Amino acid sequence: MNHFIFFRKSGEVSSNHLEKQELLVLALHLLQNSLVYVNTLMIQRVVTENGLMDRFSKDDYRALNPLIHAHVNPHGKFELDMDKNLGLAI
């Protein structure tokens, strides 16, 4: 996941300045935590709306992983509509 998010310079921190290194790593952690949070909310909604809670086994729960990123576009155009809600209940 870190190489997907931190794609610059092959995922390596190339600076010798400790402050820049720390800032890059903290920004990477913030992005990863934000992605996990949004993905968790989306997974919870899908599982709840489709009535899958009662059908899941222990193996199914172990297979759930909020580190998915197929729906994320790290390169290219990002459209931001501040009037549109993602529909995720907090």
Rank of each mutant, 00 (worst) to 15 (best):
F4G: 06
S57D: 15
E79K: 12
G51D: 09
K9V: 03
T40L: 14
D59H: 04
L24Y: 05
S14V: 13
V36C: 02
L24S: 05
G87P: 00
E19P: 01
V13H: 03
I68M: 04
P74I: 04
V36R: 06
G11V: 11
N65S: 14
L88I: 01
S15Q: 14
I43S: 02
L28P: 03
I68W: 00
S10Q: 12
H69V: 01
M53Q: 13
P74D: 05
V47E: 00
L67I: 05
K9N: 12
L35Y: 01
N16Y: 14
M82N: 08
V72G: 00
F6A: 12
F4C: 02
A70Y: 12
N39M: 04
P74F: 08
I68H: 03
I68Q: 04
G76M: 03
P74H: 07
N16H: 08
A63S: 15
R8S: 06
M1R: 03
R62I: 11
M53N: 13
V47W: 04
M42Q: 07
M53V: 08
D60Y: 07
H29N: 13
K20Y: 07
L80T: 10
N50D: 05
T48R: 13
N33G: 03
E12A: 09
D83Q: 12
A89C: 06
K9R: 11
S34R: 08
I90S: 15
R62A: 15
N50A: 05
H29L: 05
V47Q: 01
N39V: 04
D59W: 06
A27E: 12
I43V: 06
D83S: 14
K77A: 06
M82R: 09
R45I: 00
E49W: 03
Y61M: 11
F7M: 10
F4M: 04
G11H: 08
M42D: 02
R62P: 01
D60R: 07
F78K: 12
T40V: 10
V25H: 05
M53K: 15
I43A: 03
V47S: 01
R8M: 09
H69M: 06
H29Q: 15
F78S: 09
H69F: 11
F56T: 02
N50Q: 13
R62W: 10
M53G: 07
L35F: 08
R62D: 11
N85G: 06
M82L: 11
L88R: 01
K77G: 00
L30N: 09
Y61T: 01
F56I: 02
H69C: 11
L41Q: 02
K20H: 15
N16L: 15
H3D: 13
H3P: 05
G51S: 07
P66A: 02
P66G: 04
L67D: 08
L86W: 12
L23K: 15
L67S: 08
L24E: 06
M1I: 07
